[in-house]
């Protein structure tokens, strides 16, 4: 699904990612853990196609195609989804109608007919229930006046509507209390399928109690220093990042 090879990225001339190799297979859930400033969000933005990130070396293949050549909207149309760490509010643009426009743009790319208003509303109701997002919120302007937890649920709601092939979830747990975390995790777990891959980016292990990954990677200072199974996350929780970084790879 996703193959990152020796990826080097600079921001304003400063190296942030210093040679990332990462492969996420079809249907797999990978967790990428790391302390603040390790480059986690940079990786998610580079994958989604944000401006301002210079790829100086390496490449990223998505479904066998060169991902970095694609415009952000083309990546989305090809099934890539980024769950934002800080979803931006867009006053004046309706959450639900914007999402319908997005879904229909993606469907058009796949050569599918647009979903009409009635079918879309049905779909929206079903998916909103999944993340317990009140109907009233789906209809408001995008993230406008949403609490931190509502914004994160809205991200998962959008993911559920758009049904991506690869979801990159950037610190979806940050700013959530334990109840909200469970709701978000439930939404993500409901989306797990043999055809769908996920890259779950997080600082803390607690999210991974609810979304159990197949593989865990540890990112420190722009490099993946360790990879392992879900137990690696537990070790991190107990010992901290520095000890895991310094321990010899088993």
């Amino acid at each position: 699904m996703l193959k990152i090879e020796n990826l080097h990225v600079e921001v304003d001339g400063k190296p942030i990612l210093k040679g990332i190799d990462l492969e996420v297979g079809v249907g797999q859930v990978h967790a990428l853990m790391g302390p603040n400033g390790s480059g986690k969000s940079t990786l998610s933005y580079v994958l989604a196609g944000r401006d301002g990130y210079d790829v100086t070396k390496g490449r990223v293949l998505y479904k066998g195609k060169d991902l970095l050549e694609m415009a952000p909207e083309l990546r989305a149309a090809e099934g890539l989804f980024l769950g934002f760490q800080y979803p931006v509010a867009i006053p004046g643009v309706s959450n639900i109608y914007f999402l319908k426009a997005a879904l229909n743009a993606i469907r058009a790319h796949r050569g599918e007919e647009p979903l009409d208003a009635i079918d879309f509303m049905k779909l929206s109701k079903e998916k909103a229930a999944l993340v317990e997002l009140p109907d009233e919120l789906t209809k408001r302007a995008v993230n406008d006046g949403f609490s931190g937890g509502e914004k994160k649920r809205n991200e998962i709601f959008q993911m559920a509507i758009l049904e991506p092939s690869l979801a990159v979830l950037d610190e979806t747990d940050s700013g959530l209390d334990i109840d909200a975390l469970k709701v978000v995790a439930k939404g993500v777990n409901a989306m797990r399928s043999p055809e769908r891959s996920m890259l779950v980016i997080t600082h803390y292990q607690r999210l991974l109690d609810h979304i159990v990954p197949d593989v865990v990677h540890v990112l420190i200072d722009g490099r993946i220093v360790r990879s392992g199974d879900k137990d690696l996350a537990k070790q991190l929780e107990e010992k901290g990042y520095s000890e895991v970084r310094d321990a010899p790879q088993l």
Binding site: A48, G49, R50, D51, A71, P72, E73, R75, A76, A77, L82, F84, P87, V88, I90, P91, G92, V93, F98, L99, A101, A102, L103, A105, I106, H109, A141, V142, Q158, L162
Partner: peptide, 23 residues
């Protein structure tokens, strides 16, 4: 940030522009 958010969801760039200016 708003432009990128819309595009990352699949909205083409010129349409995202129009949406934001109109809003």
């Amino acid at each position: 940030d708003q432009l990128f958010y819309l595009r990352a969801r699949g909205i083409p760039e010129d349409l995202a522009h129009s949406m934001l200016t109109y809003a």
